[in-house]
Computed example of a mutant assay.
Amino acid sequence: MNDVRELTRRLVSIPSHESEADVGDFIEQWLREHTDATVTRDDAGTDEGRGGNVIAHKGTGDTSLALVGHHDVVPPDDSQVTPAGEYVVEERDGRLYGRGTADMKGAVAAAMCAFRDADPDGELVFASFVGEEVGGVGARCAIDQGFEPDYAVVGEGSTGYSEPGVTDVAVAHKGRRGSTITARGQSAHASEVAQGENAIYRATDAVDVVRDLEFPETTVLGHDLGGSVAVTEIDGGSAWNVIPERCEVTVDERTVPGERADLGQAETIDGVEWTVDQDLPPMACDDAAFADAVLDAATDAQDAQPEHVVKPHATDAGWLSQAGTECVICGVAEPGEAHTADESASLAVVERCYEIYRRVAESGLV
Rank of each mutant, 00 (worst) to 15 (best):
M1D: 13
N2S: 15
N2C: 05
I14K: 15
I14D: 15
V23T: 09
G24T: 04
E28M: 07
E33T: 13
T38F: 05
T40V: 15
D43P: 05
K58C: 00
V74D: 12
T82W: 04
V88T: 11
V89L: 04
R99I: 08
D103V: 07
A111R: 03
A111D: 11
D117C: 12
C141F: 15
A142E: 08
E148N: 14
P149L: 03
P149I: 01
Y151W: 02
V153E: 02
G155R: 03
E163D: 13
V166C: 10
K174E: 09
G178W: 14
A190D: 01
S191I: 03
E197A: 12
Y201A: 13
T204K: 10
L213G: 07
L221T: 05
H223A: 06
D224S: 14
G227L: 03
V229R: 00
I234G: 14
G236I: 01
S238W: 15
P244E: 12
E245G: 11
R246H: 07
R246G: 08
D279L: 01
L280K: 06
A284D: 04
T299I: 05
A304N: 09
V309C: 09
V328M: 10
I329P: 07
I329M: 08
A333N: 09
P335T: 14
G336Y: 01
A338D: 13
D342W: 05
R352K: 12
I356V: 15
R359M: 04
S363H: 08
